[in-house]
Design a protein around this nucleic acid. Structure first.
Length: 426
RNA sequence: GGAGAGAUGGCUGAGUGGCUGAAAGCGCUCCCCUGCUAAGGGAGUAUACAUUAAUAGUGUAUCGAGGGUUCGAAUCCCUCUCUCUCCGCCA
């Protein structure tokens, strides 16, 4: 959520910033609501004060054995108008909440201007796209050729956008997740977490999935208020909800391997082939909770942690800074890592690393105790994929394919693959 | 699934209708004392919002959440959530 104080003190600044995303803020509506909110709130608080005072005097007079019937008449009058004003205030506050909860985060000044992903700016590049002496196959052809994927089976079980992996491919998938977690815990100082895959709507509100993006989620049918997580960022970040963290415990660095579930509403016809865009995919997620002044250094660090995974796997990639129109709802600034896919002859997103500044922490009231100020302040939250397991699997199949349709296992994964060097039909 | 107990400030824990934003202890901050260490003495110490130049005052709200009773609720009533104990069941 955007700082409500800023929203009041400098509405034009907020509106201009949001306009960079293409978000049109109804300034007049907001101003009008704010004016009546203020008016009503002052009125309500004054009435409450009166009522409290009179009630206290009733207590005192009663104690002395005095008559209280006159005072009771006074309090009845006050209560009547209080109830009236309170209901008006409630209305206004509801309207105001609905408006402000739907506002995306303010963008960092370094975010490039642009409408959509075509304006994303190249940040860095690593490795060079591999050239093949033969026509490289795509991951579906490779996996089917080796008999390691069962898309028919998956659609029988669950419909489109699911996959069944078999044998060595299932093992490779598991190896990738294990490898990534090991690097982040052993070399980057993250604490490994095991998390619920179902969370309640308060949790989803906290990280910004609700109320605006309900249609992207899978809710459980029934009396329980639960939805499948679209990313481990949701449970990880919400662990800090209503907490005041000691300064010496920052930064907090958390990593979790979870499946992620997305309805992919609105992406009909997009990436329908293979495993690129699925309703269910695995991801190793990194979350950092930091002091505000550290958050942009932390973003660089988080990004480098995700990059190292691809370097160790020797997969060519590039990093782009998302432009204003492409940056997600909760983020102030986002870097995407895109891995090279030979079959598509282009880079595809495999990680997204964001600094949400205090946008999420305000929603979840995640604070730290600033020793100099002697006051709790909001922390900054960051998250990034380190990296998407399903897409890493695709990248390995395609980049490590041989002319005979076999797959060479990357050196670094061999210890996780019973020290084998190759995936073939034998 | 059955039976019972509980949820109070950073933590532990008192508090069954007004004098309680909340005893006490721990922790933390500051000061004093003590030639080190250990110990002792004193003061302070919730959050949000509104008003304000103000992190000065003042006011409002908050004792798991939401409703209700009452002039007045941490305290009484209802609903929900969660935690713990015992029994059953189960991976």
């Amino acid at each position: 959520m955007i700082n409500p104080k800023l929203l009041r003190s400098d509405l034009d600044f907020v509106a201009d910033n949001l306009a960079k995303r293409g978000y049109v803020l109804d300034k007049n509506k907001l101003r009008l609501l704010e004016v009546s909110r203020k008016e009503l709130q002052i009125k309500v608080e004054q009435l409450r004060q009166q009522r409290n005072k009179i009630s206290k005097s009733i207590g005192k007079n009663k104690g002395k054995g005095l008559d209280i019937s006159e005072i009771k008449k006074d309090v009845d009058n006050v209560s009547a108008s209080l109830i009236n004003e309170e209901s008006k205030l409630k209305q206004v506050n509801e309207n105001l909440d609905r408006l402000t909860q739907d506002l995306p985060n303010l963008l960092h000044e370094s975010v490039p201007q642009g409408k959509d992903d075509s304006s994303n700016k190249l940040h860095t590049e690593w490795g060079s796209p591999k050239t093949f002496s033969f026509d490289p196959l795509d991951h579906v052809e490779l996996a089917e050729g080796l008999g390691l994927i069962d898309l028919e089976g998956a659609s029988k079980l669950s419909g489109s956008r699911f996959a069944v992996l078999r044998n060595d491919l299932a093992m490779l998938h598991r190896a990738l997740a294990q490898f990534m977690i090991d690097i982040h815990t052993l070399e980057h100082g993250y604490e490994e977490m095991y998390l619920p895959y179902l969370v309640n709507s308060q949790t989803l509100f906290g990280t910004g999935q609700l109320p605006k993006f309900k249609q992207d989620l899978f809710f459980v049918d029934g009396e329980k208020d639960l939805a499948l997580i679209p990313t481990a960022e949701v449970p990880l970040t919400n662990l800090l909800r209503d907490k005041i963290v000691k300064a010496e415990n920052l930064p907090m660095k958390l990593v979790a391997h979870t499946p992620c579930f997305r309805s992919e509403a609105g992406s009909y016809g997009k990436d329908t082939r293979g495993m690129i865009r699925q309703h269910q995919f695995d991801k190793v997620e990194l979350v950092q909770i930091v002091k505000p002044e550290d958050s942009y250094n932390a973003l660089d660090e988080l990004l480098s942690h995700a990059e190292i995974i691809l370097r160790k796997l020797n997969l060519p990639y590039r990093v782009v800074t998302l432009c204003s129109g492409d940056t997600g709802f909760s983020a102030s600034k986002t870097f995407d890592i895109e891995v090279w896919l030979p079959s598509q002859n282009c880079f595809r997103e495999i990680s997204s690393c964001s600094n949400c500044e205090d946008f999420q922490s305000r929603r979840i009231k995640a604070r730290w105790k600033n020793l100099e100020m002697q006051k709790p302040e909001l922390v900054h939250t960051l998250n990034g994929s380190g990296v998407a397991v399903g897409r890493a699997l695709i990248a390995i199949l395609e980049n490590y394919q041989n002319e005979d349709g076999t797959i060479t296992i990357p050196d670094i994964l061999r210890p996780y693959m019973k020290n084998r060097e190759i995936i073939s039909t034998n």
